[in-house]
Structure formats: structure tokens, C-alpha cells
Design a protein around this nucleic acid. Structure first.
Lengths: 341, 341
DNA sequence: GTTAGCACTCAACACCATTGAGTGCTAACG
DNA sequence: CGTTAGCACTCAATGGTGTTGAGTGCTAAC
């Protein structure tokens, strides 16, 4: 059996309805809709076919039908109608993005809030991979006897710091000249390339061997264990408003997943393309998110780094709107973050 | 009517029971408890008295009794028995605190997780007031034509940064010497005192007037609008496990409050003492937290600054344990954060 | 002062009948 | 031959009813 024009039409109508009501939809409901000129009986026959094809399911015999994940897949692949955001709304979103603070994490934080506000779902933003950022400046600042703070500023204005041990009796001036040397040597290099650069540094700087070794080690540790702070979540309570989470246990499980930043990072990870990507239900590998869909897009930071922004919502989410919002915000965020370059 | 020994005993037994079961407790239950050698009938008479005095309430005629906020107040003021944490547990907590990362926010983040893990409630940690931290180092780093990053390192190893505009054509070397001057001038001064220091700087540095003015402005802005990132929350989903939050709407309201960092900061604020403080139900002014209790303690950062750590839980929380945990963690956190000085 | 006994209350639970939204099937219609 | 009206059927949801049991307050006896 093949899907003809009418089956598409009906399936679309069913999904559209289910997305707003979250209730199994019956033949009468569809028949009444404008654009579908058939009696309930006809619709019923079609629905029966669609069920056999795996696009619909019935919670119980005397209930209406509910779209399956397969149906959502079809929906997002073929039936999406791109909705335009009003220019008014675009403006408001953009504005909230810039006005806030003058720091990168501030902007990302606001972006997460704007996203969850605009969609009423949960938003997630992942900062670009540390390794792809380019070093702009390195500074060692003494904070106590035998400890210093190593501060690394990257091209995107992102600042990372870590405490390192230093040999005793090193003066502030010496630390400064080491900082200067490091900056000169490492500037414009991506963070993931520091290992090579350090090899040479270590060879030519016997006297600061210990300190440089420690610095390298700390940087590498930072690179491999990405920071919790690099996953920002907005509107975590939003999903509790939807009937699929009226069960507190489900809600709790969901929130528990949100707290595990590593899981979130894994779920959001995506290939390099800038386009909006949709993962429905079990397509994202985490069992706890099996009845969620995850829509992601990318934003650019500087010239070589990408971050990810995404929305997590129930599988019956308003894909049309979410896609528009993510698409717009991806661009907006890239814009704003390029100003900090 | 006055509270005699026996009434205290019974009230305590009721609260102890209610804290673990969350169910109205009846006279039989109390009578069966070891340590109370009276028949249900006697207990009933006493309970009736306690109800009249406002310490107990009855959800409905044929139910047991439930402690009132007044009862909890009495309980924490007079009936607490300090419980000792096992040395095993202390060790585990302390360990989780240090092992993690080598940065201050990392430690605070872990502390929040340890707190919520150990208590199964929601934990909140507020970083010390920015203004009380002492400046250790100031660094201006060029990030683009006409913009620089101002980085301020404080005595506790906490790093704050902000983007500032700079006049065009300023070389990296010039920026460095300004940084050096700022560091010399401001070192060891608390951040809240920068205004006075800048007055003099501005007078003696006509050529960098614009830049310095902007820097001052940015610092003051930072001081007045405390950072969202300075309120760290752990175990936000924990409370959903308790019957008082089996209603999704309550749960949602609670989570919404947690997302508003400003409210949380206000609720946690406390006077300077280091001791553990308890606020029960409506005693904290936020209506949304009327059936929560909030227990807070302080931790020291460096010599002059205090941060706050706290637990938010249902009013029937296990006060004994929460107090022990907070007391211990307050000290532990102070210890660890002093190492970074 | 304490307690046993007893009548009373009321939420919780299980049980049942009713209702209505929705289906599948069949037969009639254009 | 596709479409539709009609009808019997299913089943979750709703609401009323009776029963149960935990708990109380009161009284009278110890």
C-alpha cells in the first residue's frame, strides 16, 4: 500500500491536531476540519490503513488515533510548513540577546532563556569545543606562595582559568615574562594544538621545565574533561506543564537527565553541518528521553568553532515553530558572538 | 496552659514520626513508640491540648495529627538532638570536594552536589559578595580592534571578566602598562572600594581618561547586578521525590522559583554570623516557598568574605541531619577555599 | 490521673451502572 | 466503485453507593 495525496492530508491533519490537544484524535474531528471534505466514515477507512502502515496507533479500541514516531518522522521530512516569525518577535529576541551583559557566557545564558521562552520547551546550549578555540592571550597571576592562576583568553572572548603550582621564589616579573613568552608562542593557535607547541617550549626552556610541564598538563586535562559550565539549560521546568509529564516520576526522571550534563552533551552532539537537525523519540539514544524529540542547530563562534543550540520537548512538539526559532537564533547568536571576536 | 515534660516528649515523637512518614500520626502510633509509656487515650488527651495550643492540626476529624509551623519552630529551637556524621561519611564528603577540579567554581559546584546527595534535598550555594573580595590582579587583553577584555583576579582565585571598549590605536604594550598600573593601584583593595581609587587614577591619567572611565563603569555595573552564575543549585529534582510535591503544579512552581536566581539570593540572605540558621515555612518571605524550610550556613573565602550554603526542603525535613551536614560542609568548604588564597 | 470501652466520623477503596466518544462493518447511494 | 449513512459494539471516564478501617472524643471505671 502506498501513501496517496489524501492519506498525507489526513495524517497531517491528525498530527497537527494531536500536537495542540495531546488527545487521541477521532474521525469526526478530522472530518470537521476545513480542507478535508470527507465524511467520518471515509476518514475511518483511511485511518485504518494508516494504522496498518504503522503511522498511527490506538491507545484502546474505542479511542481515537495517536501518531507514531514513524509518523512524526514523515511529518518533519515531508509535511513541514515553514512558519515565519513576525519581525516584531525577531526583534524582541535579538534585543534580549544583546542588551544583557557584555560577556560571552552572559549572552549564551540569555540565549537559552530566550529559546525556552519563545518555545515553552526546554532549551540547551553547548559552548563550542574548547579545543577549536584559538588562544589570544595567556597570563599567569600569582595567587599565593607556590600557586598561580593560569588564565587563557580565546578569540571568542571566552576566558578559562586553572590553578597551577609554581616553584617557590618565582617573582611576579618572572611570571609575567613567562606569560609573555607563552602568549607569543601560542597566540592564534587552537587550544588542541598546544601539545606540539609545548614540546618545543619545554626543549628550549630548561629552567622553567616544571612550571611549563604543569601548565601543559592542566590544559590537557581541561581539554579532555569538558566543563559542566559549558552546557547551559533554560526552562527546565517548562516541560512539566505538558500532560505527558503530569506523572511526577516521569518529570523527575527527565529533570535528572538534565542534571547530568555529560548525557546532555552526548545527546546534542551532531555533525558539522549548520542545518537544523531533528531526532525523534528513540532516535536519540538515551532511553530516558525516548518520548522526547530533540531539535538542534549550530552557531558559529569566531571563524573555526561551532557551538550547538537545541530544544528538548515532547515528541508532539510544535516542530514548525521550534525549527524557525532555532534557525533564527542560530544566526542571531553567531552574529552577536562574532562581535566579540 | 503550659508545656510540661510529657507534652514535649509527645510532640517530639509526633514530629519525629511525621518527618519520616509524611502521614498524619495517630495516638496509637505514638503510644507504641519506645520511651512513651502511655495508652492511646492519654496521648489523645495530650494531643488535644497540643492542638489547642497551636502545635498540631488535624487534616480532618478522623485523621491523625500533623505538626504546625509553630511546632517545627519549637522543635528546632528546643528539641533538636545533634547527630554525628560518621567519620566515614565526613571523609567521603571532603574527598568529593577536593578531587574534582582545580578551580573555585568547580569546588563550589561539587559542594552543591555533595550537599544535595547527602541530604536528598535541594542545595543552594551563593558565592561571596563580589564587593568584599580583594583585587589581586587586573589585566587588559586586546580581543579586537577597539575592544579589550578586562580580567580581574581576586584573592580567592575567583576570576571575573568583562568586555570594554578601548580607543583605537592602543598597542598591546600600552594596554599592558595600564594593566600594571591598575594592578599596582588596586591590589589588596576590596572591589567595592574601587570607586575611590579610580577618582585619583582619573585625575592623574588624563590621557587614558576614557578607557579608565569605561573600566570603572563596567566594574560598578558588575558590582550592583550580581551574576546569575554566582548562585549554584544542586539536586533540583530531589524534592519531586517527596509526597508534598506529587502534584505537578506544585513541583513546577517550586522549580520556577529555583530558576529565578534573584529570588533565591534574596531568600538565602542572612546576617553575618557563621551559625546555622533555620527558616520555617512562611518565615522566609517568598509565598511560593511557604511549605519549605530553608537552612543556611556560611563559609569563608579568604579573610574577609563570606558565602552562603543552604538546603531547601519540605518543612518536615530531617533537621537534625541537615544541620550536621551544613555545619560540616561550611567548615570543609572554608578549608578548601582557603587553600586557593 | 490514667485507661478501657464505645459510638462516631470520614477518607479511601472497591464495586457497579451509566454515559459518550469513537470504532468497524455492512449495506445503500450516486 | 468510491463514498457515506446507519448500527452494533467497545471501553475509558464519570458518578453514585456501600464497606472498611484508622482515628477521634467522651464517659465511666480503675
Amino acid at each position: 500500500m502506498q501513501l496517496d495525496e489524501r492519506k498525507y492530508l489526513i495524517l497531517q491533519a491528525i498530527i497537527d491536531d494531536y500536537i495542540v490537544t495531546a488527545m487521541p484524535v477521532g474521525s469526526r474531528t478530522i472530518s470537521r476540519k476545513s480542507g478535508v471534505g470527507f465524511s467520518p466514515a471515509t476518514i475511518r477507512n483511511e485511518m485504518s490503513d494508516l494504522e496498518e502502515l504503522g503511522y498511527l496507533a490506538q491507545p484502546h479500541t474505542s479511542a481515537g488515533r495517536v501518531p507514531s514516531n514513524k509518523a512524526y518522522r514523515l511529518y518533519v521530512d515531508h509535511l513541514l510548513k515553514t512558519v515565519k516569525l513576525t519581525s516584531d518577535e525577531r526583534e524582541r529576541m535579538h534585543e534580549h540577546l544583546v542588551d544583557k551583559s557584555r560577556r560571552v557566557d552572559g549572552v549564551i545564558r540569555s540565549a537559552a532563556d530566550v529559546l525556552s521562552d519563545a518555545t515553552k520547551y526546554t532549551s540547551v546550549i553547548v559552548a563550542p569545543k574548547l579545543g577549536t578555540l584559538r588562544i589570544k592571550h595567556v597570563q599567569l597571576v600569582p595567587v599565593a606562595e607556590k600557586t598561580a592562576l593560569m588564565i587563557i583568553v580565546t578569540n571568542a572572548g571566552i576566558v578559562k582559568d586553572a590553578v597551577i603550582r609554581i616553584p617557590g621564589g618565582l617573582s611576579a616579573d618572572e611570571l609575567y615574562s613567562i606569560s609573555r613568552m607563552l602568549t607569543e608562542k601560542l597566540a592564534e593557535k587552537p587550544l588542541e594544538a598546544v601539545r606540539q607547541e609545548f614540546a618545543e617550549l619545554l626543549r628550549n626552556n630548561a629552567e622553567n621545565r616544571r612550571l611549563l610541564g604543569e601548565a601543559l598538563q592542566v590544559i590537557e586535562k581541561k581539554l579532555e574533561s569538558e566543563d559542566q559550565a559549558d552546557v547551559i539549560i533554560g526552562g527546565s521546568a517548562n516541560l512539566l506543564g505538558y500532560p505527558e509529564y503530569s506523572d511526577v516520576n516521569k518529570a523527575r526522571n527527565f529533570l535528572a537527565v538534565l542534571e547530568s550534563k555529560d548525557t546532555i552533551r552526548r545527546v546534542l552532539s551532531r555533525d558539522g553541518s549548520m542545518e537544523v537537525t531533528i531526532r525523534i523519540g528513540p532516535e536519540n539514544q538515551v532511553p530516558a528521553l525516548n518520548d522526547c524529540s530533540i531539535v538542534t542547530a549550530s552557531y558559529r563562534v569566531g571563524d573555526h568553532s561551532n557551538g550547538i543550540l537545541g530544544i528538548i520537548g515532547p515528541t508532539r512538539m510544535n516542530y514548525n515553530r521550534v525549527i524557525s526559532v532555532l534557525d533564527f537564533m542560530g544566526r542571531a547568536l553567531s552574529d552577536v558572538l562574532s562581535e566579540y571576536k
